[in-house]
């Protein structure tokens, strides 16, 4: 314990130094854990504009939204990225974002617009993935006895792809039919996991875990990461089973540095940033004319006509739908 004396002094010094000097051109970008960007691009942005982007990652899209809502009176940043269409309504209702339309938002992102306060940065479609030998295509095929005990999905109450797939079935079968469809899936031996990690990397036959099931709910982009040494994709996405997840960015209400925050939102849909989005975050750019990486063109084309459900309907019905789903699948 004698040793501790000098160490305490060190701790005190560290604590003293920790308050980082905030110069006037720093923008705090609050985002989720999956956010990823090459430092070189941030450096280049700083060289061009003089703006330093301070990235603060925090939980998943749900946790991010909750944080933004809880701190709306004293925001923890200037701009936010990563609120998706399943959570957007909550953030908008609570007045988290300030009105801003990004420069260039008419060059593609407008296709996914839901509100004047949010700019669509990327699209990450959730689709059923399959090993190459499976000839299933549609939702109906998944309930077909030919694929008995082959499908593994994620629980919509704990997993974001799980929720997206539930929404896809609701969009496809409508309010009347979707519960019946899930009952048929259940009869056909669907397996429910809590999260993507165990479903994809342990139960799915097409991943490195080489599990027993040939169909899994994952992303349209996932096959691009499963290309074998022979250059052929081991898995494919069933493009008729997709749900469109859109991730948005916006300037926070009460931002300390709103002018620079707007420039950061512009930057997120700039060509330089959009080009990197596929490899860095496994999602598709929203900007028109941005080429996908080679492996993606081969194995993970962007779905043409995925299902969608309006954000306000998701917000209004999510709890009820999850309850109904539980009763149908768990009960």
């Amino acid at each position: 314990m004698r040793r501790l004396g000098p160490l305490l002094v060190v701790t005190a010094l560290v604590a003293g130094c920790s308050s980082t000097p905030t110069n006037s051109h720093t923008v705090v970008l609050v985002t989720h854990d999956s956010f990823s960007v090459d430092q070189g691009v941030l450096d280049a942005f700083k060289a061009d504009t003089g703006i330093t982007i301070d990235v603060r990652k925090t939980g998943d899209a749900g946790a991010l939204t909750t944080q933004l809502v809880l701190t709306k009176a004293a925001p923890i940043g200037d701009a936010a990225f990563g609120v998706d269409n399943t959570f957007a309504s909550r953030a908008l209702q609570e007045g988290v974002f300030a009105e801003y339309q990004a420069k260039d938002s008419d060059k593609g992102p407008q296709n996914y617009a839901i509100d004047k306060r949010l700019t669509a940065v990327d699209v990450g479609d959730v689709c059923v993935n399959a090993t190459q030998d499976v000839d299933a295509k549609t939702f109906e095929d998944l309930a077909d006895p030919r694929f008995k005990d082959q499908l593994v999905v994620e629980d919509p109450s704990t997993s974001s792809p799980g929720l997206a797939f539930l929404l896809a079935t609701i969009a496809h079968y409508g309010n009347q039919g979707w519960v019946n469809y899930w009952q048929r899936l259940k009869a056909n031996g669907v397996k429910v996991d809590s999260g993507w990690e165990e479903a994809y990397s342990q139960d799915f036959a097409g991943s490195s875990g080489k599990g027993p099931r040939k169909l899994v709910v994952s992303y349209a982009s996932s096959p691009s990461a499963e290309i074998g040494d022979d250059g052929k994709a081991r898995t494919k996405a069933l493009l008729d089973t997709c749900f469109r997840q859109v991730e948005y960015a916006g300037v926070l209400n009460g931002a300390k540095n709103p002018d620079d925050a707007r420039k950061v939102v512009d930057f997120l849909i700039s060509e330089k940033f959009q080009k990197l989005v596929p490899d860095a975050m496994y999602v598709y750019p929203t900007r028109d004319g941005v080429a996908l990486p080679e492996q993606w063109q081969q194995a993970a084309p962007k779905p043409e006509s995925p299902a969608t459900v309006p954000a306000d309907q998701i917000q209004g019905n999510r709890d009820r739908w999850i309850e109904q789903w539980r009763a149908a699948v768990r009960g």
Binding site: D33, E197, S201, S207, S208, S218, S222, Y282
Partner: peptide, 16 residues
């Protein structure tokens, strides 16, 4: 943090 990020991505190399 790195482990969490890698585990939540597809692909054999990420897993390894």
């Amino acid at each position: 943090v790195v482990i969490g990020r890698l585990v939540s991505r597809p692909g054999e190399l990420n897993n390894q």
